[in-house]
Design a protein around this nucleic acid. Structure first.
Lengths: 346, 346
DNA sequence: TCGTTTTTCTAGAACGATTTAGTAGAACGA
DNA sequence: TCGTTCTACTAAATCGTTCTAGAAAAACGA
């Protein structure tokens, strides 16, 4: 095993001190061009790839990476275009500041392993994407003194947030449904207590996710007299919506509308209808939340939120020292498409 | 400024040596349960978040992260479901090994900044996703002694690859087109020389991307007599396909088929047709590559490749010491849908 | 009982860089 | 000519861990 080439090796070979080699890489104006040239040449000759990342991070206290925290599995995150849109926006800003993104899944089930991962992560700041209040990983980050920006309001541990008004947005959807005469609605939520094999109906206080609770409260606000049933087919995914809606449709007690709390779940619900010969908007109303690209194609009524802008804004708060506004509320908009229609009278 | 709480602080407070504190976190079986308990309690009391990531990485030489290298902007990567599928597969394996993913965009234009980012990245291994041979960042990684697995065959710097047979797959598509009688085909490629405002026609040797060249060669192989024009509307994205196809359709010299080298571009081309009142499969044939979910919805003829499996396999090669097979060729399949039809006779 | 093994803990040297404070020598102004 | 200011470089401390080697005490075997 040949000993590793370090800044010291290069220094010796070039006949200068280690500090000078360091400067050659980091502060080119601190030394003469001639010497710098010589050092770089020597480094290339020795196969020295430049200052080691870990050592630099240790000494200078900067990791050059933003941590991105997701609830649930990373693989789920990528299956929702909504999450992907957020990442795209965040990535755009990260690029600008030549910073990398460190993706970290923190399960809401196996709390310990997620918290552990966060503890060990080499990051300077963190973006909190749909992680519930009170998750120990957040306290961990706070302890580590890592600035956080959340996609939810009122994360008190976070140093800022970029969010939408979940309650108002959902209330707008509720108003839409109420106006169409719907009084019996099934709400599709994300829950790790259910699986696509065995969808379940939940009580309001069993809903784990903060945003979900707010959205349900929003619906309730503008549909005070409606019957709202909360159903889950598992994680936030197409398959879960498919399963949960299928389960509901096959039951004796069909609602007149299915309100997915995310588009992916709502799209799953539309699929469940199709396989049963039902037409969304005519036989049953389906609505979503987010307005991902596929929602338009499918003709899904939904709440549009500017997800990529959300990602960008979070990036700015984390990386741009000039970003002063610590709390941003992004606008949302009800988008009515073919999947919603009047409730049948009977 | 209060001094930072380190392993030393905790050691002193708990009345043990720093080594023992370290062991409390990393090798629980090396010390008595009682002492471990005491240390952890003291740590919590002091607000010590556990061993510092950078220091640990320096000392133990492990960063606990896989670098993911993309050509082009990270934000583009997320706009292609194909890339997202790859990430989902990779993430799945990363989770299993409790390793994080460090996303690193390395532009093919601003070579230097990308190479720099790679130099500084704290990673143990790297997944190379569609990066061209000869990109200096790869040599950089090689120098750093970081094992790489590529999604392309024959990256000689990489220690393994998981790929499809680009040439054969494209040849299958060419055969399909030839059989339908197409002899005048426009190929849509990804190129940073073009923009969606100004699509351009390229020579074969101007095509920057290795995989693109192989796919074009594959088409040529089974369509030896056809006229193949290579056109680009910019980066690999829906908008680029839309622009490039629009430009072609508005010209005096329409082809009978448009072959996108990715589904996102092909879907853009289908959209361009629709806005001009043309029906894919009847007026003009459109084909793609990848078989992303949207391809099925849109009825796009394409080459299916198991992208998520590709991600998983790359992850295994990088993280699983038991993974011995260094080179994997994944199967592909021609999926014929409504977007392809016979060439008009004239 | 005595030597050997096992358990539990520690001292001190790395890991590879950056930073602070400082030193020669050159350049400058008067 | 002398004191001052730059420029170009260096020595040594330091960042917070983990690791190697080893020591003290406890347990064990015969």
């Amino acid at each position: 095993m040949t000993p590793r080439v370090t800044i010291k090796t290069v220094a010796q070979a070039a006949g200068v001190s280690p500090s000078t080699v360091s400067n050659a890489y980091n502060k080119p104006d601190q030394l003469s061009a001639a010497v710098r040239e010589r050092i770089l040449a020597k480094a290339a000759e020795l196969g020295y790839a430049g200052p080691d990342a870990a050592a630099r991070a240790l000494r200078s206290g900067k990791a050059g990476a933003v941590g991105v925290l997701f609830t649930d599995k990373l693989s789920y995150a990528f299956s929702d275009p909504y999450a992907v849109g957020f990442l795209a926006g965040l990535a755009e800003v990260a690029e600008e500041f030549t910073t990398s993104l460190l993706l970290m899944p923190i399960s809401s089930v196996d709390i310990e392993s997620g918290t552990n991962a966060v503890r060990q992560a080499a990051i300077d700041t963190a973006a909190i994407f749909c992680v519930d209040h009170g998750h120990p990983a957040l306290e961990m980050l706070k302890n580590r003194g890592i600035p956080m920006v959340s996609t939810q309001r009122g994360h008190d541990l976070a140093d800022g947030w970029v969010a939408i008004d979940e309650l108002d947005s959902a209330a707008a959807m509720g108003e839409h449904l109420a106006r169409l005469g719907h009084r019996d609605v099934v709400v599709l939520v994300d829950s790790h207590q259910a699986t696509s094999r065995q969808p379940i109906e939940l009580d309001l206080d069993q809903v784990g996710c903060d945003d979900c609770e707010l959205r349900i409260a929003g619906l309730r606000k503008t549909m005070p007299d409606a019957r709202l049933r909360i159903v889950s087919g598992g994680h936030n995914a197409f398959g879960s919506g498919l399963a949960a809606a299928g389960w509901v449709l096959d039951s004796q007690d069909r609602p007149t509308a299915i309100a997915g709390l995310s588009d992916v779940q709502a799209l799953g619900a539309m699929e469940a209808m199709k396989t049963r010969g039902l037409i969304p908007g005519r036989d049953l109303t389906v609505t979503g939340f987010d307005d991902i690209p596929a929602a338009e194609t499918a003709g899904l009524t939904t709440i549009r939120q500017p997800i990529k802008d959300k990602g960008r804004a979070v990036g700015r708060l984390l990386l741009d020292p000039n970003a002063t506004e610590r709390h941003l509320t992004m606008p949302t908009e009800l988008v009515v498409r073919a999947s919603s229609g009047p409730a049948p009278r009977n």
